Simulated scan of single mutants.
Amino acid sequence: MPQQVRAVVARSKGAPVEVVTINVPDPGPGEALVQVQACGVCHTDLHYREGGINDDFPFLLGHEAAGVVEAVGPEVTGVQPGDFVVLNWRAVCGQCRACKRGDLQYCFATHNATQKMTLADGPDAGTELSPALGIGAFAEKTLVAAGQCTKVDPSARAAAAGLLGCGVMAGLGAAINTGALTRGKSAAVIGCGGVGVAAVAGAALAGASPIIAVDIDAKKLEAARKMGATHTVDSSQEDPVARIKEIAAEYYDGADGADVVIEAVGRPETWQQAFYARDLAGTLVLVGVPTPDMKVPDLPLIDFFGRGGALKSSWYGDCLPSRDFPMLVDLYQQGRLDLDAFVSEEIGIDDVEAAFDKMHHGDVLRSVVVF
């Protein structure tokens, strides 16, 4: 029978979120019902609330989650009840052009649950909900496609492991997968919120040096240093492009910038800084999420041609959850990746709106709802 659970919903653009009761169907073919244990409060959820992604209100928010599979529908073989899983929004289809050519991390047709969760009470009872990134995990239980469940070590702390579901994976992957950082390469990260600090951690895991963190907030720069930044730059006090070039040249004779510059803000002016902070033939990785009205700065085409290299965007850190989540949880369990450092606070389901305010003021890397 369908179950009723508490969940966080955004009813209209810019309105405060509400905790309501929703209906969660029994899993159908290819679906899984997951009892959510923890879910991070990600900036993407705020984008949904503000109408920055689409206007398919009401939204069931939350997507950076870990929990336990409670039930599965017919035709599900990859997970079973009792499995501890991190939820993902890249349940690959296996049939699109990207999948068939072996680039599963770029799947064009990722799976979501077919059935809809709905509002349970009030005049809008029965209204279908749009789950954030096809997940909707600010809820005691949620219904997802079985492929959105990635099994990981069940002894891992849910509040930390769940962050791999979006922001931390996006940052780590921007450095390791998209930027292809290795030993002997330098890295700069512009913007040190949760995703940017994760990119710093990814650069450190890859063995890059130096790792230069750029922000205007001293607290964020300190967090970046703790996660592996060798240098920090307060871009409100000095020119970040000039400083990145200076630091890179101290490490590598003839360097004219960092080999990989990761832009984790999503604004034209910081993207332009990243463009010019690259070394010749360097790589720019955009992982910060821009709004639809933002445009690439007006750059002389000769500057693009003359510097060479690559301009990339990083979708979900170009990750493949089945490959990357278990590996990163293992690194966490070994003490080599400090996922706990990203958990600024653990909160209840009624505290999501306050967590958005803390995020806006830069007071947290991640608030995590714990059920």
Rank of each mutant, 00 (worst) to 15 (best):
V352G: 02
F275W: 14
V260K: 12
L320C: 03
M327C: 07
G136W: 04
V189S: 13
E222A: 15
V5F: 10
G51T: 01
I135F: 01
L172A: 07
L337S: 04
L181A: 09
A354G: 08
D256N: 14
Q105V: 11
D357S: 14
V369P: 05
H111K: 15
P268S: 00
D293K: 09
R183E: 15
P240D: 04
A137L: 09
V79E: 07
H111P: 04
L119N: 10
K185I: 03
L104H: 10
G317Q: 08
R278N: 11
A71V: 01
G162R: 01
G288A: 11
R307I: 07
W315C: 05
C319S: 12
Q334H: 13
E70W: 00
A203P: 01
A180D: 12
T291A: 08
L163V: 05
V168D: 03
F84V: 07
D124P: 04
G362Q: 07
N54M: 11
E263C: 07
P297S: 13
A109Q: 15
V17G: 13
V260W: 02
A248H: 11
Q115P: 00
W271H: 12
K141Q: 10
I211F: 10
Y332L: 07
C39W: 04
R157G: 09
I247E: 13
C39A: 12
G191I: 04
S313D: 05
Q3D: 14
K245L: 03
G102S: 05
D103H: 13
A224K: 05
G173F: 02
R243M: 08
A113T: 11
V168T: 00
L104V: 15
T232V: 15
I211G: 10
A113Q: 11
M294A: 12
K245F: 02
G308Q: 13
G184R: 09
F325V: 00
T232E: 00
G52P: 05
D318T: 03
L164T: 03
A218Y: 02
I211R: 14
A174N: 02
L339N: 09
